[in-house]
Amino acid sequence: MTVLCKICNGAVTPTVPAMKCSSCAIYFHIKCIGIDKAHFDIIKSLNGVSWKCDNCRSLNNTTEAGQCNCCKLLLNLVETINKLSETVNTLQQQLLNFHSDRSNEETIIQEVNERHKRAKNIIIFGIAEKTDVSIDEQIEQDRLFILQIIEQLNLPVQPNELNVHRIGRRNLVNLRPRPIRITLKSESDAHMIVRKFQNLRNIDLYKNISMNYDKTPKQIAYYKSVKQELTDRISRGEANLKIKYINGTPKIVTLN
């Protein structure tokens, strides 16, 4: 059965597109109702878009029926744009989260690697530094002094198993000695020296010398924040508090 256009009575064919009224189901050539091919294709591509002929719209006085095809099209376009905008925002947030997570993972990996690299190091403070000797002579004197400490502690660390150097640039004006970084053969050697050195603190030669592990900048910053928290809590009247390392992490504990 041939479908005819209500206005011109011409046949509706694939090459002569037409709009079908959603109310009376009658067809109208798009050229007869003033819709060009481009707008027709847009309307057809949008799901849920309905169209009513002038006669059906005039018979139905409801707001929905009174909306012209352009109004319906605009409403659907706005809804589609809003959905697309929400999708874009979601994708952008997911992308930001991805980059943030990846950046955090890289930072953690770098920190772990840096801590592992420093695990065999010890930092020594307070060993006198001479200004009237060469750098090589100072290094050798520092090395001999460290070996003397190791011998006093009766530890099985060989001279060829440690590397000694001062941290920072040498300043002939500033008499404050630079700290010394010692790199040992193993992490266990570093822990053993730091722990046992406390036994020498009552000897005059070593009373102004202190040792600590080689910490990363993040570890130092975290310790400072814990120390500040301790100071704040004590100033508020809390007592019997101290910083204690638990599994390698400084924490504030209450003394019994």
Score class of each variant (00 low, 15 high):
I180N: 05
T249D: 00
Q158E: 05
Q110W: 03
K196G: 04
N60T: 03
C53S: 04
S186F: 14
M192Y: 00
S22R: 04
A128T: 10
K242S: 06
E105S: 09
N55H: 06
T15W: 04
R233A: 12
E64V: 13
N247Y: 00
I193G: 07
I81H: 01
D36G: 11
L75P: 01
K227Q: 12
R201D: 02
P156A: 15
D101C: 01
K83E: 03
A190V: 11
H29M: 08
P14A: 10
L255K: 02
S134W: 09
D204Y: 08
R176L: 12
M19L: 15
A11P: 06
L205D: 13
L96W: 00
L95C: 06
I81S: 07
T249Y: 01
I81Y: 03
V112I: 09
E187N: 10
S58W: 00
C68H: 11
V16G: 11
D232T: 10
F98K: 04
T2A: 15
D204L: 02
Q198C: 06
I182L: 06
V226F: 05
P17W: 05
D54K: 09
K117G: 04
S85L: 09
Q67H: 02
Q148S: 08
I108E: 14
T90H: 12
E151N: 11
V49P: 08
N256Y: 06
A190Q: 05
G248A: 02
L59Q: 07
N208D: 07
K52A: 13
L144A: 08
C8A: 13
E111S: 12
S23W: 00
L162C: 14
F125P: 00
K37W: 05
L255V: 15
I246E: 00
I146W: 01
I123K: 03
L172S: 06
D41H: 13
V133R: 00
I127G: 03
A65W: 06
C53Y: 00
I149A: 06
F98I: 07
E106A: 12
P156H: 14
L144N: 14
I203K: 01
S225D: 11
R195V: 08
N171T: 06
N97H: 09
C21G: 03
F145C: 15
C68S: 15
N69R: 15
Q198A: 09
K218A: 08
N89C: 03
D214N: 08
E129F: 05
Y245H: 11
C5D: 03
Y223F: 08
I209Y: 08
N171W: 05
V164P: 08
M19H: 13
Y245A: 01
N160E: 10
F28C: 15
H191W: 12
P14C: 07
K196T: 10
E86I: 09
R170C: 07
R166T: 05
L84K: 10
T231K: 10
N82P: 04
V3Q: 13
D189A: 15
R166C: 06
S22F: 12
N240F: 11
K117P: 03
K44R: 14
Q198V: 12
T254V: 12
G126M: 02
I123Y: 01
T62S: 09
L95R: 02
D232H: 15
I123T: 13
Q94R: 14
I243C: 10
I33G: 10
